[in-house]
């Protein structure tokens, strides 16, 4: 684990007066602690808040929904997509060209995730899943629909599974990513998958200026299952924030 890629962990601002004149010698300290360290530092913080979604409290009138559920009569032990359960696509921020330390090559930024949920009846124990992947691929990565989650699988730290939920009150859920990294509140896409998921996308700049860019477009899929259809899985909040750790 690293505290980021910069030397200092904080930026050092420089002014144009310190480098601006022609024929000035280039000061090593400015280049190293200022420009080099600063660029790396700001890039470490360039991850984006991708999902900051919460239903309303119900204390105010109007304004949309107060929770998201699966189908009203779900079959037991079957994965269902939740209402509002495809949050994407958006472009995953990625490290990875041929420069620099090898442990950053190809890795997307890690994503901090939180999910707040409940069951509507304690007799129906619910399990929730977050799957970060391109649209149309999420079913490939869900664990078996029933029974206990299987052991960690390589390449699966982009899937997060909650502990079983029997509470009928909303709470931030505990869980773990399904790969060997076993993150409690984070998911990580392997570089091999990011490469496999890269597509070419429209990035036109005007109606007549046609451009494309390569991107790793992903969506967070929110699934849930219940042990007994008396208990319907329900969510109130989901968040996903990229950050530059590795």
């Amino acid at each position: 684990m690293t505290a980021g890629t910069s030397l200092l962990g904080y930026p050092v601002q420089i002014g144009t007066a310190t480098y601006g004149a022609a024929d000035d010698p280039v000061d090593t300290a400015i280049m190293r602690a200022g420009v080099g360290n600063g660029l790396l530092h700001y890039a470490d913080g360039a991850g984006q808040m991708r999902i900051s979604a919460c239903y309303q409290s119900g204390l105010l009138t109007g304004g949309g929904g107060s929770s998201g559920t699966v189908e009203s009569t779900p079959n037991a032990n079957q994965w269902y997509l939740l209402e509002g359960g495809i949050l994407g696509p958006w472009p995953l921020t990625c490290y990875g060209d041929a420069t620099g330390p090898s442990d950053f090559k190809g890795y997307p930024y890690r994503c901090r995730v939180y999910l707040r949920g409940k069951t509507t009846n304690a007799s129906g124990s619910c399990v929730f899943a977050l799957v970060l992947c391109p649209l149309g691929r999420s079913l490939e990565y869900l664990p078996a629909p029933s029974g206990a989650p299987s052991p960690p699988i390589n390449f699966r730290d982009h899937v997060w599974i909650s502990s079983a939920v029997t509470s009928t009150s909303f709470a931030w859920l505990t869980g773990a990513s399904r790969g060997p990294l076993d993150f409690a509140n984070a998911i990580q896409v392997r570089p091999e998958l990011a490469q496999d998921w890269t597509t070419t996308e429209n990035a036109n700049e005007t109606s007549s200026t046609l451009r494309t860019v390569d991107q790793v477009l992903v969506a967070l899929h929110v699934y849930a299952r219940t042990s007994n259809n008396a208990g319907v899985p329900t969510v109130s909040a989901v968040s996903l924030e990229e950050f530059g750790g590795r």
Partner: peptide, 18 residues
């Protein structure tokens, strides 16, 4: 005061300094 959302949203700002 009444809360708009069901819960306060979890957020962090980017790293700034040590």
């Amino acid at each position: 005061y009444l809360a708009l959302f069901e819960t306060p949203l979890r957020v962090l700002a980017p790293i700034r300094n040590v």
